[in-house]
Design a protein around this nucleic acid. Sequence first.
DNA 1: AGCATGATGGAAACCGGTGTCAGATTAAAG
DNA 2: CTTTAATCTGACACCGGTTTCCATCATGCT
Lengths: 354, 354
Amino acid sequence: MGATKTVAAKADGQRGARATINDVARLAGVSKKTVSRVINRSPLLNEETREKVEKVIRELGYVPNPQARALALRRNFLVGLIHDNPNAQMVLNMQQGILEALQGTEFEMVVRPVDRNSAMMLDDVRVFLERQRLFGVVILPPISENDALAALCDEVGCRYVRMGSAQLDDGIHMVASNDREAVREATDYLIQQGHSLIGLIEGPDGFRSARERRLGFEEALQAAGLTLPRSLIAQGNYTFETGVTAANRLLDLSPRPTAIFASNDEMAAGIVFAARERGIAIPDELSVIGFDDTPIAAHIWPPLTTVRWPIVSMARAAARKLVGDMVGGQAAAEQPSELPSTLVKRASVAPPPA
Amino acid sequence: MGATKTVAAKADGQRGARATINDVARLAGVSKKTVSRVINRSPLLNEETREKVEKVIRELGYVPNPQARALALRRNFLVGLIHDNPNAQMVLNMQQGILEALQGTEFEMVVRPVDRNSAMMLDDVRVFLERQRLFGVVILPPISENDALAALCDEVGCRYVRMGSAQLDDGIHMVASNDREAVREATDYLIQQGHSLIGLIEGPDGFRSARERRLGFEEALQAAGLTLPRSLIAQGNYTFETGVTAANRLLDLSPRPTAIFASNDEMAAGIVFAARERGIAIPDELSVIGFDDTPIAAHIWPPLTTVRWPIVSMARAAARKLVGDMVGGQAAAEQPSELPSTLVKRASVAPPPA
DNA sequence: AGCATGATGGAAACCGGTGTCAGATTAAAG
DNA sequence: CTTTAATCTGACACCGGTTTCCATCATGCT
């Protein structure tokens, strides 16, 4: 039976079987260990030897077996993406950003949705991390705001980078935008257009993003000397449906607000929907600004003025922070930990009716 | 420092470190190999021995190390998701379906977007499959229609299941919906409402889904004795923007169609957008039906009548087909390979104007 | 020149499982 | 009460890397 083993025509050609570290070592006239040193960028290594080995690796098209490395290093070359609930477009953009950063490396991305409300959530994640021995994880908002989760990562020795709407730590384990400032700017824009009765549909309690966006909104009004009665603030949970409900409440008010800022685009789309049902014209009778710049913002009528949240770049930066050192790129610390949001002006804002 | 190790909640056994197969073997008084047989559900095994070993496994909370298994089996416990381009909501729903099927198993999902137009696509995928030694892949439309890709999977010995709009093979490697029939039904509905001048915005050439949906449309018209002049057919590439363009072409016609079927919701949303720009009322002056039932269908005004494409169930079935045998569930062959689409009636269809 | 010093390279053990195959055990048959 | 066959079991090599421990070798210093 031993004779019938897979006949690997390894020597030179790119036959069926792939080259192993032994092939490289033999052809380069060195030991496995030396090849391993080259692969792992060991600093104490003769430059000449390194080049010789690298040449053979190139010629052979040798790629180390990830499974074997994972076993020996007790660490997988996988980056996990932990997320809960959020908007599909957002998650997919994050995935895109991470994959861009992982492009051309030996890393792959595994996706792990979790249920924030489940009592088992932390246990599930623990099993996941310990079992798979992930290289690291990127944690998406809103679950990224869960400090217990970050603590768990530390405990099981898994690197992590959190994404969010404001810095939560020193920037080592975090990539953030600055939502507060962006919303302040967006609200200023409404004020400049002449609005003074501006409603807010904020996100759910306990969400950092909701809090930051609300603070930005309040700061802008305050700076302009405008008051913000409690009645002009409605709350939603970032879904279209709650946006409709919240908008209906605000539009029932008398006097009616002439503009509404929604904490995300889904809810802003809900405002547009509710206004349409009531025959309120946008932007002539009501101005609307959203947040995120998801595709829906551009695809409804009228196209939505919104704040573009740089999630693809954030995710890319997060993934680079994780694997940066390993792939010969910039060090993790050199990755930006805060990225700017920008106001995108479309057709849902106009001066208030006379 | 060994003392400071994470104290895992292991029933009684060892300290922090997790149990290995050797621990189990020792405590059960058998050899590694026997434990391995229990884990892998080997049939030739004394029932008594099996129970004894399983008891120890349970008490120890032992879980085999995936990295070691991957190395020995030359196969990873990862299911790949290969997709290109498509709509975010669709991809995420697919991910959800796959993850549901993988829930509670030792499998994880890794995501791999590809560029259909890149010359390197096949090579990229080959490297991916060979490097990672995936257990199997689920291939999403439209790239799932690429036969070369399926052939590549066969070649490198990677299981695969394709998803699509119609059966392409015997159902072993495919999970499909029956788009043609669903569209025929939707078109019938328009005809029953009294429409006779019905436009079609079809998908791009070379897409199976586009073809099936167009065929269903034509069959319905034919069955009703209606003609379909070439001018009533416009084409888009499944994006909102091309939907707007195509709709504009159809709405310029004279006489103008009183209803339009779009091959997907994005393009249907484009019709609504274009109609709104021209002041054409929906559904009073124009009826619209889309396909997919993505969230946008329910979130625009008026809510879109559309065909609900059962992608979550399809993805779940696909993943089960891949890993079914391994996780003690139903055999792959028992998984359904065709799932039904259903018409969802909302507010974008009405009888034609008088 | 002689010796301490640090830089390399190699043999073998190890990571934690699985395959092979011979030997042990048990059951069925003669 | 053997013999034969069928069923289980375990020793050992192996998957393809990394790491430990040492022997070797070129160089710096006295």
